[in-house]
Design a protein around this nucleic acid. Sequence first.
DNA 1: GATGAATGAGTATTCATTCAT
DNA 2: AATGAATGAATACTCATTCAT
Lengths: 202, 202, 202, 202
Amino acid sequence: MPESPVRADAKRNRSRILAEAAAVFAEKGASASTEEVAARAGVAIGTVFRHFPTKRDLLQAIVKDLLERLTEEAATLAADGDPATALFDYFRHMVAQAAAKKTVADLLAADTGVQLEVSGPVLTLSAAVQTLLSRAQHCGAVDPAVRLDEVMALLTATCQGALRSGWSPDLQERTLTIVFAGLRDRSSQAGEDVAAVRRRSG
Amino acid sequence: MPESPVRADAKRNRSRILAEAAAVFAEKGASASTEEVAARAGVAIGTVFRHFPTKRDLLQAIVKDLLERLTEEAATLAADGDPATALFDYFRHMVAQAAAKKTVADLLAADTGVQLEVSGPVLTLSAAVQTLLSRAQHCGAVDPAVRLDEVMALLTATCQGALRSGWSPDLQERTLTIVFAGLRDRSSQAGEDVAAVRRRSG
Amino acid sequence: MPESPVRADAKRNRSRILAEAAAVFAEKGASASTEEVAARAGVAIGTVFRHFPTKRDLLQAIVKDLLERLTEEAATLAADGDPATALFDYFRHMVAQAAAKKTVADLLAADTGVQLEVSGPVLTLSAAVQTLLSRAQHCGAVDPAVRLDEVMALLTATCQGALRSGWSPDLQERTLTIVFAGLRDRSSQAGEDVAAVRRRSG
Amino acid sequence: MPESPVRADAKRNRSRILAEAAAVFAEKGASASTEEVAARAGVAIGTVFRHFPTKRDLLQAIVKDLLERLTEEAATLAADGDPATALFDYFRHMVAQAAAKKTVADLLAADTGVQLEVSGPVLTLSAAVQTLLSRAQHCGAVDPAVRLDEVMALLTATCQGALRSGWSPDLQERTLTIVFAGLRDRSSQAGEDVAAVRRRSG
DNA sequence: GATGAATGAGTATTCATTCAT
DNA sequence: AATGAATGAATACTCATTCAT
């Protein structure tokens, strides 16, 4: 006897629920009802709660999923892409995705009302971005003084901005162009500024 | 005939409610209960609804208030500040404020679930920022190709980022430094990039 | 000094409130809000409650007023009208009025949710109708066996029917024609029926 | 496969709720609270709303139920009864029922404040009464000029009168006797009156 | 494991009534 | 006497969660 056949069903249900939940919460925000998720996944409400004992668990699973996907994309770019542009491509790609799909990128910043525990997956994502950053700096495409947390901060801020305020593709590009310019030449004109900052923030 | 004394009481209540509501919604999100607002303002629930017949009205009033305050600050800086740094100061000030007070800056991007009507106040704010921008460009402190909507986009994105992800003062500064650099010298090193953008977005 | 001038104001307010209340309750039913009555009467809510300490009091006053008016109309008809038709005219008039004005005739049957005390005025009205009835019976226009309570029952039932179901003028007439025929010749064809009734209801 | 057993439970609850709701609304009017219905049906408030998502739905279901029962009774009489008296029996039966049970006959005239959609069931009831009427006219027990809408008008008016004003059995009979006489001999003594009516209402 | 009915605390909103001005 | 702001109980409806089938 192979693995119990029931389990196959359950697994299918689980991912169906996850997928529909992502869609529902993306459309209506985290306050959408679990009942609607169940309906759209074609299962009864009890089934949702069997798989995710709490709404919080469901949200957390979605976010974890999303982060994993984003991490994979970063890894792929790190493997195949031109080091000089991969970081910028990644930025652009994510922002476009956020704006277009109104995905759960939302949840990344956890204004859920619920506190989600996703530090693990976030760390992995950061590591992937770190790779992109380092290589870009090696090429001279990004100022060597730039640190990972600034990049992550700008990344999430622009994604959310694009998502929430519905930036047009044109606006996305113009905004990112400014950010990219900043990442490149922080050292030159912005030099004295950096010095000032160091003094202030000790 | 002076204004009716009854109104004095009512006015005091109204602002008390507004203030506490801003605090409550900032802490717990827009889905916090109106009852809690009432409790914290020390009035009965009916009083809240007498002043703001709908929760939506309350949220809208808060946002309108906030935007007005922000607009005033921009105007003040435009009047008194050094044109070369006023825009940057404003940015820095707002981001710091958002991060510190965890205010309702949140609501600016309206992930309220409710649709708020605030186009008027938003326009006024934009106008105020436009002034700061133009003057900075006259001084050569900001690239003349930069447009208002990019600035507003970066402003809200960084405010929200700071708010939601709780950027430390240090991180705030480092992130803004990148943005400021981008605003300044988009034309120089970033030259070819800009050209590319123009091609893409027509 | 004549009567205090304040009192004149108060009296005017009282009748204004009474009139608007009748209109409001007629339109929206007895569950309309007292606040609306106040607004339409152009006074503050407190003033309404000063004159009628309870909503029930207000409703009661309206009904009393209405009954008095109806009584007057009956009395007038008794004085001026043709005894043979006055009762029928009264019926017709009241039904038409109820259907047209969607007045507070409603309240006559007290489905107010509140219990109104109006036995006094109702007795007076009954006395007035009794006069019409007796005279019609003297003329031979109404069967002598008909009693007052049957007439009142039919009167209120038809008024309410017309009011609630919105009888057209045509339907009003056809329905009343049947009732009038019944009032006239209960004795003839309906004879054996009456006998049966007497046996049953002892 | 028999029907799911879960459904049995649910069905029992549904009718329990319906029955208690009818009782509650009959006693206290349509503005009685849904909570009380739930309490009296021995279920939690959520259960009531699961079965009837809106108070309006609940009221509508009650009325539909009632109309169906009334229609059945008319059909039974049409099948078994003496054509000459069946219509009168039906009248008498309904009025007695309304007065005794203080049922929701009330709702028939929809002074609910809410607008109920019951045109379907009402049409079916009318059809059933039409049968009784036609047969009575064939027998000569009812004047051939009488139309269905007059009969329905008198039927509902008397039911409501009996219900609201609490007619005693004796008063019910005496009132109905008048109505029945009117239905029978509109043509004879009432002749000139009918002519007048025809002239007026075209 | 899946189903979906039941639960009941929670939420926005209304309205008669009171009371400070 | 009038005003209108404040009160707070009441009400329809929602939704996460439990549990019998």
